[in-house]
Amino acid sequence: MTSDLISIKILRSILYQDNARWNHPVNYYPYNSIYFIRGGDGHIRVGDTQWDLLPGYAYLIPANTMFSCWCDRFIDKLYVDVNVEILPGYDVFSPLDTPRQIELGLPEIEAILSANDSSSLKSMLYLKGSVTTAISLFLDEGHMVPDREMLQFQDLLLTIEKNLSAKLTVAEIARIHNYNPTVLSRRFKRVFSCSLKQYIERLLLDRIKQELLVTDKSIKEIAAQYQFCDPYYLSNYFKKYVTYSPKQYRKVSRPMGS
């Protein structure tokens, strides 16, 4: 595998400082979040397991992990929301369902926070490099290297990524790549443990969630971008999987120092 298969996209990075008002019982985001802790007495919990957020440490919360977070007195951290795709649309941390912790040291945390606070190209590259280094430290040796069959789907996954919309069908993907739709669906499920239709729907849903959480686009704009016939159809599609309407999801889930 070559490194050009890996795409690291920082969706946003925000320095956050607050007191005990930082208390969010339910968080569930479609992207990975990394906390770089400078100070405070914060905590995160997944199920019955709790992690104390120690100064000088970084914490990874994998995408689609339901967790709670709070502090006793105050929290001082940088949080970075990031996608790390090892194949188009296939996140390297997707098999994980629990946070991970690494020690970086306070001087490195300070340097990362300082880089985030600057608009220079040098600082932007330093921040991305530091996030990339942290990601590598969160991984186990040999973690999630795609096998040969997965790599054979690289062009097909790229087609999905480039054409992702409510109108994209298995039949259209099969036509583009000269497959029989039934044969393609069967082979895809054997390799990825989900049907191609499920994969498209999951990816589309995650992209819509990201639009709702990290942009200020209207529901109408998002519906047009992903080729839903109108905002009402998008809302019905979204509620089928999430329970909330897109507007409600944005209101209750948009991070405020999460």
Rank of each mutant, 00 (worst) to 15 (best):
Q154H: 13
D48V: 10
P62H: 01
P146T: 04
D97G: 09
A111Y: 12
V145Y: 05
S136I: 02
K122W: 09
W51T: 11
L157D: 03
L104Y: 07
N163K: 02
E161C: 07
S123R: 10
I135Q: 05
N64S: 06
L125K: 13
F67L: 03
L168Q: 09
T159A: 12
L121C: 11
M124P: 07
K128G: 05
R148V: 11
A134S: 10
S118C: 11
E108K: 15
A111V: 11
I86A: 04
T159Y: 15
Y79T: 15
S119N: 15
Y126V: 14
T159L: 11
I176G: 01
G47E: 04
L54T: 10
P55K: 00
V46Q: 04
I86R: 03
E110I: 15
A115F: 09
D117M: 11
R45A: 08
V92K: 05
N64E: 10
G142F: 09
Y126L: 15
H177Y: 04
I75P: 05
Q154A: 13
K122E: 12
S123H: 09
R148M: 15
R73Y: 13
S118Y: 08
L139E: 07
S118V: 08
R148E: 15
K128P: 00
S130V: 09
L137V: 11
I61Y: 02
L78T: 08
L164Y: 07
V145E: 01
D72T: 10
N178Y: 09
S118I: 07
I75D: 07
G142K: 12
A174H: 06
K122D: 13
I86W: 02
P55S: 00
L164D: 07
E172A: 15
S94I: 05
S165F: 04
L106N: 08
I160C: 03
T65Q: 03
D52F: 08
S120E: 10
S130F: 11
Q152V: 08
T132G: 09
